[in-house]
């Protein structure tokens, strides 16, 4: 039995005539210590999938099994990093992480908790900003806090819902490396939801496309057989990288073509030149 298993999972919202099936027949197995990326597009039901796995939602049919037991609610064993950071704006970086640590280790003494908070803030290189509030931080720094908070709860599995989607390319690259470093240290199981194929290839062991909803299902999986640590620049010379990347992109292009409709009416353009006024 795999570490996390989704068996024939479907999720329907609404009932009767208004029912829409967002996800249908999702089957997924993730082994312990594995890093899996799911590439999906807006409106494809990614968030629903994440919420099913973290326990905020229950499937309409099928089952979500974590370490042999069906998931019935949220748990500290599965930490989630959201795209919108969801930090409490009136608390400092330290306090934001501290809230989570208190929640997870209510029995430990103050010193232990303090050290743990500091350790994880240090891990994401935010020690200089430890007493700042979220609004004083850049987007990348906020996401670092959010990562520190999720990891400080010592989850066995990290679920990341487009964690870097709102960041610029450079910050994105740095944070990818940081997440990979942390993941590498103790090989936690990780599930990354992303819309960026390159991010998926760079970080994951396997990439599985999520076909756009309604009735979203998982597509064929792509194994990334590239040795770690991976290097962004030299990846471009790696024939395995090119092959895998082209394979995924072509598959996504096919999905895209299915979505587009063909034009029906042909409009003719009048032969006119524009007038400019200075």
């Amino acid at each position: 039995m795999a570490y996390l298993e989704l068996n024939n999972v479907s999720k329907t919202y609404g009932k009767g005539a208004n029912a829409t099936e967002v996800l249908s027949n999702i089957n997924l197995q993730i082994e312990e210590g594995e890093f899996v990326a799911i590439v999906g597009f807006s409106g494809s039901g990614k968030t629903t999938l994440v919420n099913l796995i973290n326990g905020l939602l229950q499937p309409t049919s099928g089952e979500v099994i974590f370490k042999g037991n069906p998931i019935t609610g949220t748990s500290h064993e599965r930490g989630v990093i959201f795209q919108n950071y969801s930090l409490l704006p009136w608390l400092t970086v330290y306090q934001n992480v501290s809230v989570a640590v208190k929640e997870t280790f209510p029995k430990e003494n103050k010193k232990f908790r303090e050290n743990r908070v500091k350790e994880y803030i240090n891990m994401v290189n935010l020690t200089p900003a430890i007493h700042k509030r979220p609004k004083e931080l850049s987007g990348g720094m906020r996401q670092r806090v959010s990562i520190a908070r999720a990891l400080a709860m010592d989850p066995e599995m990290i679920i990341m819902d487009e964690p870097l989607g709102a960041l610029d390319a450079l910050t994105r690259g740095n944070l990818q490396d940081e997440i990979l470093n942390i993941w590498n240290k103790d090989k936690r199981t990780a599930l990354l939801i992303t819309n960026d194929v390159d991010e998926g290839i760079y970080m994951a062991d396997r990439i599985i496309p999520l076909r756009p909803g309604p009735n979203a299902t998982l597509g064929p999986e792509f194994k990334i057989n590239i040795d770690r640590p991976r290097d962004k620049t030299s990846l471009n010379d790696d024939p395995e990288f090119k092959k895998t990347r082209n394979g995924i992109i072509e598959y996504l292009m096919e999905i895209g073509e299915e979505r587009t409709t063909t034009e029906t009416i042909e409009y003719t353009l009048p032969d006119l030149e524009p007038k400019y006024f200075d």
Partner: peptide, 16 residues
Amino acid sequence: EREDICKYYLSKVGLD
């Protein structure tokens, strides 16, 4: 004619 221009380009971007 103006309407045709608008419709032409809107249909070209797939919004007919």
